[in-house]
């Protein structure tokens, strides 16, 4: 198993979303997470603010950009990871940088109540970002069952 599937049990999985910018990405995924009870109402503003101050875009070896937005545990009800793939890349800023921009195609929203205990999942996720083949599969995948097949590999 690539990542423990319990983090995807609520199936917040959105494929090939046609969105213009970061704000639209956060609006869409936050609404989905909130409707499934995973995050609190405060989540959307919290995650947007945090991304402004501490960007989470990562330019991978493969040339693909991913982002791992996350925010403080107080806005979270339940440990989950939300996924969104984007039809056209959306600009995020590179983690740790004030100026670099990363065109992002894959977004993994980390909803964590106590991240210290989720080290394994976070490590597995980072590990997977280094695997070009898996990244390609995430880009191509267009439904829940295919997505879960990748996760369960």
């Amino acid at each position: 198993m690539l990542i423990d599937e319990k983090f995807f049990s609520k199936r917040v999985l959105l494929f090939n979303e046609d969105l213009a910018n970061r704000t639209e990405v956060f609006e869409k995924i936050s609404a989905e997470l909130q409707s499934k009870g995973i995050v609190k109402e405060s989540f959307k503003d919290a995650i947007e603010n945090r991304e402004k101050n501490y960007p989470t875009g990562l330019a991978l070896n493969s040339g693909i950009g991913v982002a791992i937005p996350h925010t403080d545990p107080e806005h979270i009800n339940e440990n989950q990871v939300g996924f969104m793939s984007l039809k056209n890349p959306v600009k995020f800023r590179q983690m740790g940088s004030e100026t670099e921009v990363v065109p992002v195609k894959l977004v993994f929203v980390l909803c964590l109540k106590e991240a210290h205990k989720q080290l394994t999942m976070l490590q597995e996720l980072m590990e997977l970002f280094g695997d070009n083949e898996i990244i390609k599969e995430f880009l191509l995948c267009s439904n829940e069952s295919d997505f879960m097949k990748i996760i369960k590999k």
Binding site: R50, H70, D72, L112, E114, A115, L119, L122, Q123, M126
Partner: peptide
């Protein structure tokens, strides 16, 4: 350290 002190710093800490 990271922005929240929970997610990415945890991964870096492990490494």
């Amino acid at each position: 350290m990271c922005g929240s002190g929970v997610a990415t710093s945890t991964v870096v800490m492990g490494k």
